[in-house]
């Protein structure tokens, strides 16, 4: 179960529009101020996801979807509000594995599992299944810098779904996959969702969102623009975006 109650998240980032000039730096130092920019990525968002349900998060680039998912995963603390989760988390954030691009896929799988709190034995036991499902074959022994983005996605997805999560967070993981992989991944996600898991799916592929989700939240500049039945929200979103229902938006590109 995931419960997001009135959550706002603000990034504090040091950011310079132009490369810092020497004079500006001295002036700034004199004032004792540093250039901290606040980015309000998520504002007053609330929703609940119950076991067996799948929530879709849609919105334009930079709307705050990834930020919200990171907060649910417990990575970013909310600036305001609170988030409650029950169950073991499986996170599949954009490029979730890939600790070290210099080491092999296999080592990355183990490292990723250990970071997520699984024991070595648990991961070793699952490894064969993960490897087979990803269909990467010999590439698993190669450094991850030699992987294509789709191969990256395959491995990340395979790890996330095979570690038996109660809550599955999927952010943009399918975008680089080929048709065969996407079909397989969708079946797998439906399976996880059926096994009483709660799932949050972030995707620009509106087709898959409509098919899989019970409930859709549309974020716009960090705020909930609309929430409710997938078909209604997606139609409104498409109209807002100025694209009408075409095969292009239906197929995940």
């Amino acid at each position: 179960m995931i419960s997001v109650r009135d959550v706002s998240i603000t990034y504090k980032t040091t950011f310079e529009k132009a490369p810092p000039s020497f004079r500006k730096s001295v002036v700034r130092m004199g004032r004792g101020s540093r250039n901290i920019r606040l980015v309000e990525a998520v504002r007053n968002v609330s929703f609940e996801v119950y076991p067996g349900q799948t929530l879709g998060l849609i919105g334009r680039n930079g709307a705050g979807k990834s930020t919200l998912v990171r907060a649910i995963a417990g990575i970013l603390p909310p600036t305001k509000g609170e988030i409650e989760t029950r169950g073991r988390m499986g996170t599949l954030l954009a490029l979730g594995v890939g600790f070290n691009r210099e080491i092999s896929g296999r080592d990355n799988v183990i490292l990723g599992g250990l970071a997520n709190g699984y024991t070595r034995d648990e991961i070793e036991a699952k490894y064969q299944e993960i490897a087979d499902w990803s269909e990467l074959g010999d590439f698993l022994e190669m450094p991850m810098r030699t992987y294509s983005s789709g191969m990256f996605g395959r491995l990340a997805f395979s790890v996330a779904v095979h570690l038996d999560p109660d809550i599955l967070l999927v952010d943009e993981a399918l975008s680089a996959g080929d048709a065969a992989f996407r079909e397989k991944a969708q079946a797998k996600m439906e399976n996880v969702a059926k096994n009483a898991g709660a799932m949050v799916l972030v995707s620009h592929g509106l087709g898959i969102v409509r098919e899989m989700c019970d409930y859709v939240v549309w974020l716009e500049q960090g705020e909930v623009m609309m929430a409710g039945d997938p078909t209604d929200v997606i139609i409104a979103y498409e109209e807002n975006q100025g694209v009408t229902e075409t095969t292009i938006t239906r197929e995940d590109i």
């Binding site: 509000g81 609170e82 409650e84 997520n116 709190g117």
Partner: peptide
């Protein structure tokens, strides 16, 4: 708290 059963995440 990292993979666990129930967690509440509050402001820092």
């Amino acid at each position: 708290p990292f993979g666990g059963v129930s967690t509440i995440s509050k402001p820092y």
